[in-house]
């Protein structure tokens, strides 16, 4: 195998459901975490593995947050919509963590269930509490536009596995972006109550946006050489202008203003988290830790 010089999908030619058929409904062919576990090369360096871990942790923590809404959303249709989005994010997390884990000889479950709080590398925005429906929609808006821009670039990554994961994920987060934008418009232009709530949500979450675009974690020599300079990942500051433009357009259409609030310090990529992550992890990890190796 040619390894990481060429970014193509050759390594995953036979991925997906081999029983897929044109004459009946099947899960369809798409790259699955199970395929990544058994096919393709492991990350070419520890920095690349760590980068995949960052991407996976963002998706995992957001998925765990969103899944709380299942059975609690305001309408059953919205319940399923948020559940679908949570499962998309979980799928991306599984793929990135499976790939990252191959470098250290760990599985996706080892990484999700057996790391401690300070070992998680997710940004603080992902762990922010769901709040009311408006807070969850505002968080979704910020994250999905960011992920859409990020995965669009990563689909061209020099690392063929990251490129393949991003190529599938970008189509899914494109829908998440649409979902969040549609709700932002309806809440912003809805009742006095809904407009006040989404306005407050946008203001409250705005300080956590800065961390998403912080280049500082990539200043580390290995990260810079193996990830950014090698074309495996992108310096997030390069996504910022486009993000600002898209968010400003959606907020304006919703009758909302771009908050003039300073950004908070975020140390998620260094494993420094807010008080929220510990509780989230306790709930996410308790079953796996109580019954190690259990399956169903």
């Amino acid at each position: 195998m040619s390894g990481h010089e060429t970014a193509d999908l050759d390594e995953f030619q036979s991925f997906g459901d081999v029983t897929a058929s044109a004459t009946r409904v099947t899960p369809g062919n798409a790259l699955r975490p199970e395929d990544i576990a058994v096919q393709g090369e492991p990350p070419s360096s520890e920095a690349v593995a760590e980068y995949a871990l960052w991407l996976g942790d963002d998706a995992l923590i957001l998925a765990q947050r969103l899944s709380w809404w299942i059975s609690r959303a305001p309408e059953i249709e919205e319940d399923i919509a948020l559940g679908n989005i949570a499962l998309d994010q979980l799928g991306h997390a599984r793929s990135f963590l499976t790939y990252a884990g191959k470098f250290w000889g760990k599985t996706e479950d080892d990484l999700a269930y057996w790391r401690e709080e300070e070992e998680f590398r997710s940004c603080h925005l992902m762990e922010q509490p769901n709040g009311d429906f408006g807070v969850t929609i505002a968080r979704q808006l910020f994250v999905s536009v960011y992920q859409y821009l990020l995965y669009t670039r990563l689909a061209e990554s020099a690392d063929s596995t990251i490129a393949a994961i991003a190529a599938k994920a970008v189509k899914e987060v494109d829908y998440h972006r649409d979902h969040a934008a549609q709700w932002t418009l309806r809440l912003g232009r809805g009742t006095e109550e809904s407009a006040a709530r989404i306005r407050r949500a946008v203001e409250d979450l705005w300080p956590y946006v800065g961390e998403l675009f912080e280049d500082q974690p990539y200043a580390d020599q290995r990260m810079h050489d193996d990830v950014v300079a090698a074309g495996v990942g992108v310096a997030p500051s390069t996504l910022r202008a486009e993000w600002d433009e898209q968010i400003a357009a959606i907020l304006a259409e919703a009758g909302l203003e771009v908050p003039q609030v300073p950004f908070a310090m975020g140390g998620g990529r260094r494993g420094e988290h807010s008080e929220h992550l510990g509780y989230l992890l306790a709930e996410m990890q308790v079953l796996a830790r109580k019954h190690p190796g259990a399956s169903w």
């Binding site: 409904v25 369809g28 919205e78 399923i80 919509a81 679908n84 649409d178 549609q182």
Partner: peptide, 16 residues
């Protein structure tokens, strides 16, 4: 608009 999106979420989640 939301009807179309809800339909997507409810009735095509198994690749139908």
């Amino acid at each position: 608009e939301m009807a179309l999106r809800n339909a997507r979420d409810l009735y095509t989640r198994r690749n139908e």
